[in-house]
């Protein structure tokens, strides 16, 4: 995945239409976005503006009704469901607001989940999992179940799961939205470190200006338009 002009994500004239009964709701209305490799981008905007929808389109979790989505030079909107799933497994790390850990699995097994889709042996998987848990500082909590962890710790496990496959881009949907200030800062420090020290490209949807301030660039999405400043 390399781009000659260093643009990793290119969203062009994208729209997503949702149906509510007989009514059609256009969420993005022809949005454009370019995101260079290695950037930490924060995406802000009012509720319902389409931030998460844009994130889902870039992550291949959903398909645009119109327009194109290109990541690493690949038109992911053209991929079949099966190829898109495979692409997601290799290139996308997802961090959710409510962590989305499987409650029946330990932290270690949760982090291992994406690796089940690879051909790695159990021993190799465990090695990768230990490294990922080490990055988020939770090596000693690997055998704990989500219910035995605090919100901040669960989100760190979520980040470990997102980075364990060494993805091309990390997509974080309000990663601090469910956390107190201290935990929130820990998570933001971690994301900053991943971006600065490991060069991870990160796109983070947030409502929190304090979180957005940690990003290298902030865009505001409203009524389908992306802007560098919020609309008055």
């Amino acid at each position: 995945m390399s781009e000659s002009n260093n643009v990793l994500v290119r969203v062009h004239d994208v729209d997503k239409v949702f149906r509510r009964g007989s009514e059609e709701v256009h969420v993005l209305g022809g949005a454009h976005l370019e995101m260079p490799d290695g950037e930490f981008l924060a995406l802000m905007g009012p509720s319902g503006s389409g931030k998460s929808t844009l994130l889902n389109l870039i992550g291949g979790l959903d398909r645009p009704s119109e327009g194109t989505v290109e990541v690493g030079g690949l038109r992911i909107d053209r991929l079949s469901d099966r190829k898109l799933a495979g692409w997601r497994a290799r290139h996308i790390g997802l961090v959710f607001q409510f962590y989305n850990l499987l409650p029946v699995l330990t932290a270690e097994r949760n982090v291992e989940l994406p690796l089940l889709l690879t051909h790695l042996s159990r021993a190799e998987r465990r090695k990768h999992v230990a490294a990922a848990l080490g990055v988020v500082g939770l090596k000693d909590r690997s055998q704990h179940y989500p219910r035995q962890l605090s919100g901040g710790e669960q989100q760190r496990v979520g980040i470990a799961r997102a980075i364990v496959t060494d993805p091309t881009i990390l997509l974080c949907d309000e990663p601090t939205g469910d956390l107190d200030r201290t935990s929130s800062d820990e998570i933001l420090n971690l994301l900053s470190a991943l971006n600065e020290e490991q060069g991870k490209t990160i796109m983070m949807v947030t409502h929190d200006p304090h979180a957005a301030a940690r990003a290298s660039r902030t865009l505001y999405l409203d009524k389908g338009k992306l802007a560098t400043e919020p609309e008055e």
Binding site: L61, R82, G86, R88, F96, L113, L117, R161
Partner: peptide, 16 residues
Amino acid sequence: IGELGVLKALGFTHRG
């Protein structure tokens, strides 16, 4: 349902 969605988000195919 949510957990199955997470699996798909992580890269599990529909058939998987």
